[in-house]
Design a protein around this nucleic acid. Structure first.
Lengths: 204, 204
DNA sequence: CGTAAATCTATACAAAGGTATAGGCCTTCC
DNA sequence: GGAAGGCCTATACCTTTGTATAGATTTACG
């Protein structure tokens, strides 16, 4: 069974590779970036399983996943990550990932997960997927209208109402209205506070 | 040679442990948090080498390092990290760490690094330590006076000039002056922009 | 000691921001 | 079809913020 592992942390990649190769029927190929992985897939034909680090040069979020799936001829591609959230995991599985392996998982489970995925199942650790997502991504963004988001974007770039108005081709007074509404919805005391709250929430 | 590894990423900890144990004279004990590591040190006496993950429950920055050094009876303690910057590495070495191992290092080097540290040398990968630090942490904070930092803190909390003045027991007009200076130094167009720049830089 | 830099204050004015009220336009939903 | 809500605009007023200029104090440094 041929496995490709791509992770830019040499220590992680090499020790995981060494660990998997202890299994008699596992043959591991490892590389340190997405472009390198892409080249290897084209060169050494489809792998029985590919594991991609989510945070890796060239990976560009989950774009790398999509491209790897397209290249690997229907064989499973999984995501490996140290810091990703539940939402990222769900997104990955929706995009066709064979599995999602947080680096907090036990190494024993790794072998099981690999066999699972190779068998065509989707794998993700139960504990990780059912955890309460305190931020729930952005309850914030959902409560704001498109225009309000536009204005909030301007605020976060430190623009004046007049500048935002020019950018959106609206009247300054309209921007003031949106800023007012934003402050109410975000429970901010003024534009600066609203911008900081948006920043804290990870928008922009 | 008895080694203690503490890292909350099971996959990383277990595969590194397994990798090191392939060396004939290495005996590895692994744990998943700093408090657990502390207990093990007290219980199983000093280790020939301790490796602590920088991002780990209970580690609290480099406080864990200092405490582990104090507990380990003069034997070396090193830091393991996936994301830390050069500055963090320097700080760790200054605080008496036996070494700094980014997870991007090659696994072959790991064994060498371990032997190095055990021999009483300080180890850190040359390439990592000499890299250009583009942000240099906060060139920003250094260029600001204490008062200016106080005011910037207020800005980042969305306070008005009047509120900041009350908080610092100054006149509102003085705050305006500081805000003006801040905008000049940070090249911000207004208070909101200044706050965002500070936030982006990681201050507050 | 003199000087530079940071700090604080004052006055005054111009610009931007925030609030309130009111009305028109459009889409969605009952 | 009417109601509700998002969106845009207008007018008016007041507050806050930003700018300029000027002077007093303190602290650090050569």
């Amino acid at each position: 069974m041929k496995i490709l592992i791509a992770d830019d942390h040499d220590l992680v990649r090499e020790t995981i590779s060494a660990f998997l190769e202890q299994e008699a029927d596992f043959e591991v190929v490892a590389t340190e970036s997405f472009p390198a992985a892409e080249a290897l897939i084209k060169e050494q034909g489809p792998f029985d399983l590919i594991l991609l680090d989510y945070e890796m040069p060239g990976m560009n979020g989950l774009d790398g996943l999509t491209r790897a799936i397209a290249l690997n001829d229907g064989m499973p591609v999984g995501i490996l990550s140290g810091v990703a959230t539940k939402a990222t995991a769900e997104e990955a599985l929706n995009r066709g990932a064979a599995g999602f392996l947080p680096k907090t998982m036990a190494s024993k489970s790794l072998v099981n997960a690999v066999r699972f995925m190779q068998a065509g199942e989707q794998y993700a650790p139960i504990g990780f997927m059912t955890q309460y997502e305190e931020t729930e991504i952005h309850p914030m963004a959902q409560r704001l209208s498109k225009r309000e988001m536009d204005v909030l974007s301007g605020l976060c770039r430190g623009l004046s109402n007049k500048e935002i108005a020019r950018e959106l081709d609206l009247q300054e007074v309209t921007i003031k209205l949106h800023v007012k509404t934003l402050c109410r919805k975000l429970e901010a005391r003024n534009r600066t506070h609203a911008a900081m709250i948006a920043k804290d929430a990870g928008l922009f």
